[in-house]
């Protein structure tokens, strides 16, 4: 198993663990939802925490059932599936009041045990993303279709640009399939 786990997977596992860690008195399991997790992953990519991930715009179903284009990492999604396959995380599917479905993640006891032997250096790097200066865990807040990292202790809110889609320069010319019988669009003539 050790060979299959990359450094980025350990970082991902550590993020999930930090948000689903429970105090002893708490009995019911805690889960981290996919949209906040995707936000943390994106923040991790643009700050250089995740070395092998990139992202691309993706149409994501929001909490109110509408869709929004967000920068989502396919590599991270693949790693989550690998962590699931290795039994280090569990996945929960739940429905929302708006008839949507969301996925949530938590670390299994096996995953927690694996993490306890993971490099402290890696965990420390990840914690720099998750904690604010006051050493409190920052939570993801979604307000008016915008994403923030928010520290409940010191009240600092940092916007995450996961919804800022990137543009590349390109040129396109019009094209329509021939079966429509429209002809050459460039000349504006029907066949």
């Amino acid at each position: 198993m050790q060979d299959e786990i990359t450094e980025d997977m350990i970082k991902l596992l550590h993020i999930i663990h930090k948000y689903t860690l429970q105090e002893e008195k708490e009995k019911d399991p805690k889960w981290i939802k996919e949209l906040p997790l995707a936000t943390l992953i994106y923040k991790g990519i643009i700050t250089g925490l995740f070395e092998t991930y990139d992202y691309a715009p993706w149409s994501v179903q929001m909490l109110d059932g509408t869709r929004q284009w967000l920068n989502v990492s396919r590599e991270a999604k693949d790693d989550l599936e690998d962590l699931l396959r290795l039994g280090l995380i569990s996945i929960l599917r739940l429905s929302t009041g708006n008839y949507g479905y969301i996925t949530a993640y938590r670390v299994t006891p096996r995953g927690a045990s694996f993490l306890s032997s993971a490099s402290e250096e890696i965990k420390k790097t990840v914690n720099q993303l998750l904690y604010c200066n006051s050493e409190h865990l920052r939570f993801v807040e979604i307000q008016n279709r915008q994403f923030y990292l928010f520290c409940t202790a010191c009240g600092i809110r940092e916007r995450v640009s996961i919804d800022d889609l990137e543009d590349i320069p390109y040129k396109s010319r019009s094209y329509l399939p021939k079966y429509l019988g429209i002809g050459d669009l460039a000349r504006g003539e029907k066949e």
């Binding site: 320069p169 040129k171 019009s174």
Partner: peptide, 11 residues
């Protein structure tokens, strides 16, 4: 139907 032929990207 929307159709586009991409003939140039990033120059």
């Amino acid at each position: 139907v929307y159709g586009a032929e991409i003939f140039e990207t990033c120059g």
